[in-house]
């Protein structure tokens, strides 16, 4: 237990970094996912295919590859290093967040899409017969029902994202997993560290789970 207690301040600091990465990427990913889900149900072919291929590529490749392309790959391009983007892209912190947000955005867009698509036809017809136009129908019927139906699946995605942030440790960031690896490789106590850090992760998972259950309960009105 001693190595863990000695490194406790570092562990706490890295736990905060993990929370930070998770929350920021989930929020950005939520926005991206929402926009791309709207594009996916739109009638404009270009937007549809853009969204389709975005989610195809980001869901078909490992997050590990994505974060490496953004962190190591983009740095290779001359024009990126000279552009204003470089201020953001030279920092592993932002590279990690960009990769996480794009990744979770792809999954989120699929979750919302299936939520929007599964709306009962009768409801849409009823709205139509009440004289609501398309936009209004979307706003008062498709959107609230779709979002509500997406909550359980979105909860799983949040937990996957929490686990995904462990990849930040591969681009030099000291998040919980990075710190765990550091302690293991200096003190050689893998089981102890796994149990301790693993419990912290499980606690976070539990928090997300409780939050999602609360949301589900709150929005269950029929």
């Amino acid at each position: 237990m001693k190595p863990i207690l000695d490194n406790l301040p570092d562990i706490i600091k890295s736990a905060i970094l993990t929370i930070e990465l998770t929350v920021i990427s989930i929020l950005i990913g939520l926005l991206i996912g929402f926009i791309f889900a709207l594009m996916r149900i739109s009638k404009i072919k270009f937007l549809f295919y853009l969204s389709y291929y975005y989610s195809f590529v980001f869901r078909g490749t490992p997050l590990f590859v994505q974060i490496f392309i953004i962190y190591f790959g983009l740095a290779q391009l001359e024009f990126i290093r000279e552009s204003i983007l470089w201020i953001v892209l030279k920092k592993p912190y932002w590279c990690a967040i960009i990769a996480f947000a794009l990744n979770t955005g792809a999954y989120t867009s699929e979750i919302f899409r299936s939520g929007f698509e599964k709306i009962d036809k009768n409801l849409l017809e009823a709205a139509n017969s009440l004289g609501l136009n398309k936009f209004k129908t979307f706003l008062v019927i498709t959107l609230p029902i779709g979002i509500k139906r997406s909550i359980p699946a979105y909860g799983n995605e949040m937990i996957l994202m929490l686990k995904g942030t462990s990849l930040a440790s591969t681009v030099t960031l000291l998040d919980l997993t990075g710190t765990a690896k550091y302690i293991i490789s200096t003190h050689f106590n893998p089981v102890e560290v796994f149990v301790f850090v693993g419990s912290i992760y499980l606690f976070f998972t539990f928090l997300i789970h409780t939050f999602v259950k609360y949301l589900e309960k709150k929005f269950r009105y029929y």
Partner: peptide, 11 residues
Amino acid sequence: RGVPELLVIYL
């Protein structure tokens, strides 16, 4: 299902 893959691999 709750612990990151990397941590399991390190273990």
